[in-house]
Amino acid sequence: MSINLSVQSVLDSIESAQKNDIVPDQEFVLQGSVMDLSVSVLLSRLRGLCDNADSLPETFHDQEICFILKDFSNPGAVGPGTGGVMLRVRKALDHPELPWQLRYTGQPEVGNRPALLRNCLDVPVSSNICDFLHELGAKVDHEYVSKGYIMRKGRIKVTVFKIFKVGGKEVQEGVTKSHVVELSALTTRVDEAIATDLRIVADQLKPLVNLQNLDYRRL
């Protein structure tokens, strides 16, 4: 996505150009799922593979709200990418004192890579972010609660979690009796070596979980 230089002031664009080389704004992701019955097996295997094998995996309980910022100046636009910018707001339900997180994820990059590559930016914000986005003109698209475990292996973040509807009930009761498994790693624009590491970890989880590059927009 090209930066519209006429919009930013000159100082800002210089700053961002400087930041872009060292700010990790690219993310490699591999996603899959595992049935609920096999989650404990997966967790013990992951405990063996990841750092800190001697302590129990850390749990998290977050609520995520997705906002869409539509492009009002061009309401008749059709086609991919014109649905608007999607911004995700995440708050920790088990640690309400922590700042909320605002996350922007871009379109997956085209190309044959061992893992899905996409632009991503994580910004900690104050808790009035929802109000702010509402004033900005964003609308809530969907929201859900995710609860699960998070582990780390070097730079790779491994999460195993279950999706719930806000209010406590599981999404698609009866259809989904699975946990989502996600491997992700943040990197800078020029470093793609981490993707092979991701693939190696993913292969070590076979045949329990089959992790792939899945673009959810195509589903």
């Binding site: 799922s33 049935m35 698209d141 999706i163 698609q172 989904t176 089959n210 927009r217």
Partner: peptide, 11 residues
Amino acid sequence: ETHSLLAAIGT
């Protein structure tokens, strides 16, 4: 299940 879960998260 993978597909439906990812669709639920993403869209």
